[in-house]
């Protein structure tokens, strides 16, 4: 899912950087002093979640969980996921430097969209209903992410269209898995710590 340096056209890279800066600014505005520890610890959790490999048939995929990040963090998912990508690039050599903006938008924009759309639905109703909405959100976030990745590749040149298609189809199983896992994660959280969602319902940052 990571795009590397040198593949995208300058226009796409710059557009990505500008959009990421805007998203991060929006996210930082919603982060008060009180919310910094929560956002920081969740950002670390999503980093750790990306280290988890889940088997799919003969192969395995690593988790992204950006839908879940959006549901829990709202706009703050933008800086939180950005921080994760920065650390991955610097200390693990994943992704790239100039493409950080594009990669952030590709992961965080779907997260925020899913969060804004489904947050209330996930927090209300029975835990099962919330979990189903969360599952839809988890799958939708991956679908949107692959969509945006495909768009950023295709916008950089026609030669990437086969690669863009490959990215999209290769991620269909990932959508299913992320949906299932997001749903179960929310089901557990709703049952174990319902008060978490009391605040989410009220403060829609």
């Amino acid at each position: 899912m990571h795009i590397v340096d040198g593949a995208l056209s300058n226009t796409v890279v710059i557009a990505g950087a500008v959009a990421a800066a805007g998203g991060i600014a929006m996210g930082l505005r919603s982060l008060t002093l009180e919310r910094i520890p929560t956002a920081g610890v969740l950002s670390a959790s999503f980093f750790v979640a990306s280290l988890i490999y889940v088997p799919v048939g003969p192969s395995s995929v690593h988790l992204i969980m950006n839908g879940l990040a959006g549901i829990l963090l709202g706009w703050a998912a933008f800086p939180a996921l950005f921080v994760g990508l920065v650390l991955q690039a610097i200390f693990f050599g994943f992704g790239g430097l100039t493409v950080l903006g594009v990669n952030t938008v590709n992961i965080a924009l779907p997260a925020v969209l899913v969060g804004l759309m489904l947050r209330r639905l996930v927090a209300s109703g029975t835990p099962t209903a919330g979990a189903i909405w969360a599952g839809i959100g988890g799958a939708l976030a991956i679908a949107l992410t692959t969509g945006v990745v495909a768009i950023s590749l295709a916008a950089s040149g026609d030669e990437f269209i086969p690669a863009a298609k490959l990215v999209f189809f290769a991620h269909i199983p990932v959508m299913v898995i992320e949906g299932l896992l997001t749903g179960f994660a929310i089901l557990l959280a709703r049952k174990v710590k319902p008060e978490l969602f009391e605040t989410a319902k009220g403060a829609n940052a």
Binding site: E34, P37, T38, G40, V41, L42, A44, S45, V48, A49, I52, V54, P55, V56, G57, L63, M65, L68, L72, I177, L180, L181, T182, G183, F184, A185, I186, L187, L188, A189, V192, K193, L196
Partner: peptide
């Protein structure tokens, strides 16, 4: 590759998040 695995991993992620949020309350 089965339902049980995905449910267990989902609960695992959920548990990690619940604990992370509780931890962040203590940190604050």
């Amino acid at each position: 590759t089965n339902w049980h695995t995905y449910r267990s991993f989902g609960y695992l992620v959920g548990m990690m998040l619940v604990r992370a949020i509780e931890r962040s309350e203590r940190i604050l």
